[in-house]
Design a protein around this nucleic acid. Structure first.
Length: 254
DNA sequence: GTAGTCAAACTGCCGC
DNA sequence: GCGGCAGTTTGACTAC
């Protein structure tokens, strides 16, 4: 139904970010404790540095670079001590951030390139198996968790969009039905008044024998031998009434 | 400067 | 236990 749901992607191998992976994919409970323990357990070695998002963005060198650097500096300001240690400290800060926030969560915008690739994958497949997730994460220099979250959010956005479309359709349908209802009410009133007038006329001698033939829809005089004249019903409605037609085809109103 | 919007990230729950 | 989803939080960005 949705325009966006489609499937499939095949991807190559990719490396995860081990430390971060343990954090981001295992349990949420641990995450809450991270700020307390990360310095002990995850104090970075340089080997962890390249795994960070900031590094990923630096590698891309695109429009996100500025914001990454901004984020980076904002997180590492307090830890920069001396010239020679700056790089070291930055790495450690990034790693700390990468562990899903230290004091607060870090949120970095994906690059246009990353978003475009993710969109392409999403068009092929709205979900990813773990292998595909890993591979895509490696390709985009993101954590698998980030890819996973992106797909979750993307699915949610697609669903929301579809819901809005459905809502609009229902709204239009409701308006159409309301109009149809008004029209039918009006028609009903007309028929009622018409019947009232007719029954009044029936009391007149000349009109007493007037009937409408159900088959030919003609008003006939009672004395001509037509079958309709034999009925005791003084007044009938033709079979092609719009009212009856609407009832038999309710969907036509939409 | 701030309100509004978007999107990344988190949380809790549920079904398999 | 894991993945998906709904709901929520929050950082980044924009328009005024």
């Amino acid at each position: 139904m949705g325009l966006d749901d489609i499937c499939s992607s095949g991807l190559g191998l990719g490396l995860g970010w081990n430390v971060k992976e343990n954090f981001s994919q295992s349990d949420h409970q641990q995450k809450k404790k991270k700020s307390l323990v990360r310095d002990e357990h995850f104090f970075p070695s340089l080997t962890l540095g390249p795994s960070s998002d900031d590094d990923a963005r630096k590698a891309h060198g695109d429009d996100q670079q500025a914001s990454s650097v901004t984020a980076l500096s904002s997180f590492s300001n307090s830890s920069v001590k001396k010239e020679g240690d700056v790089e070291f400290e930055r790495v450690s800060s990034r790693v700390g951030d990468e562990d899903d926030e230290g004091c607060h969560r870090k949120k970095l915008r994906l690059t246009k390139h990353q978003s475009a690739i993710l969109e392409d994958r999403f068009k092929e497949h709205t979900t990813l198996c773990p292998k595909q997730k890993q591979a895509l994460a490696a390709k985009l220099d993101l954590r698998p968790r980030q890819v996973e979250v992106w797909f979750q959010n993307r699915r949610a956005r697609t669903k929301l969009k579809q819901t809005e479309v459905d809502c609009e359709l229902l709204k239009k349908c409701c308006e159409t039905l309301t109009e149809e209802n008004k029209r039918l009410q009006k028609e009903l009133q007309e028929l009622k008044s018409w019947k009232l007038t007719a029954s009044y006329c029936m009391q007149l001698p000349a009109a007493a024998t007037l009937t409408m033939c159900p088959s030919c829809e003609r008003v006939a005089n009672g004395g001509d031998g037509h079958p309709a004249t034999t009925t005791s019903i003084p007044f009938t409605i033709g079979p092609k009434s719009h009212f009856i037609n609407s009832l038999s085809h309710p969907s036509a109103a939409c």
